[in-house]
């Protein structure tokens, strides 16, 4: 047993030393694209639109999952240790982000630091609390609703945030990034006009949402969203609340119940059946469903869905 343990220990020490030695060998040579880690697919897509082939972007939160409750993995930690830039939502949406950065031990990526892009900078926030908060109100956000990526107008501001930071850390390619941003904004403006036209029928209509994550989407289209399937943010629906919603939906002639793919559909489907409304999937993340793999197809999908449901 002693010999076996001695061998195990010796091999452990050798493995550790080999790993440390190997880790000092550079993995890449030559000129590499900027390495960027973004917390969400929306942000990684914006970075890609502006940086094109001069950035290598990875994201942390898989798009099929609720970004509130991500468990970052050691792979994410490693990606951050190698990155040149970190892009996050700011505010308090990604509660796991600070722990992730601490695990990676890169203080330059901390909030407000030189290699951190806070995508919420310059965004007109909705639902900013104006009173003393309590968890009795559910899982609410202290700085305001953080789901601002649901409004394509906000994507322009995000693009500018990214452009500013890319220019500051990679000034040699500033004009390249500027040209890409200009082209991206130009195309986005065209699409915004198209989406507004497509969803002209939505303005003034009311929808029911599962979670309080639809404010910016509704703001863009002039929709009303005042009730939610969750009685309080983050609290699953109760039978009593569903009874109330049944009456509410009937009284207000609500045609659509909107929700992303990752919430349980049971309550929404039961309610929809009772009141004759449609359950509409509105993606929160790029890549959440097949065919929503970039910014334009993501918004195309969402606006087509809502426009169709509210006809």
């Amino acid at each position: 047993m002693f010999k076996l343990k001695y061998l195990i220990r010796k091999s452990t020490v050798i493995t550790l030393l080999s790993c440390v030695a190997l880790s000092t060998v550079p993995c890449h040579a030559g000129e590499n694209p900027l390495k960027v880690v973004a917390t969400q697919t929306m942000y990684s897509s914006v970075v890609k639109e502006i940086g094109k082939d001069r950035v290598d972007v990875k994201y942390v939160a898989p798009p099929k999952f609720n970004v509130h409750f991500i468990q970052p993995k050691p792979t994410d930690v490693r990606n951050i240790t190698k990155a040149d830039l970190y892009v996050d939502a700011g505010l308090d949406l990604e509660a796991w982000s600070d722990s992730l950065l601490e695990a990676a031990g890169k203080p330059e990526f901390f909030r407000g630091r030189e290699k951190n892009v806070d995508m919420s900078k310059g965004i007109r926030l909705l639902e900013v609390p104006d009173h003393q908060l309590s968890r009795a109100e559910g899982d609410i956000h202290i700085y305001g609703n953080p789901h601002y990526n649901m409004n394509p107008e906000n994507v322009k501001i995000m693009a500018e945030n990214v452009l500013e930071k890319l220019k500051s850390i990679d000034p040699a390619n500033a004009s390249y990034y500027e040209a890409n941003e200009k082209a991206f904004i130009s195309r986005l403006n065209e699409k915004i006009t198209e989406w507004k036209k497509l969803c002209a029928n939505c303005a003034g209509q009311e929808i029911l949402s599962y979670h309080k994550d639809i404010a910016y989407f509704a703001d863009f289209l002039g929709l009303k969203a005042e009730q939610y399937i969750e009685p309080k943010p983050g609290i699953p629906p109760t039978p009593k609340h569903l009874e109330f919603l049944e009456e509410y939906v009937k009284a207000n002639h609500i045609k659509a119940i909107v929700m992303p793919t990752y919430y349980p559909k049971d309550a929404a489907e039961v309610l929809a059946k009772r009141v004759g409304a449609k359950v509409v999937t509105i993606c929160q993340n790029i890549g959440e469903l097949p065919g929503t793999d970039d910014i334009f197809s993501f918004f195309d999908y969402n606006f087509n869905q809502i426009s169709e449901a509210l006809k």
């Binding site: 790993c19 190997l22 880790s23 993995c27 050691p74 792979t75 930690v77 490693r78 240790t81 190698k82």
Partner: peptide, 9 residues
């Protein structure tokens, strides 16, 4: 975190 040329961390 070791920087190794491997898919594992």
């Amino acid at each position: 975190v070791l920087d190794l040329p491997l898919p594992s961390v």
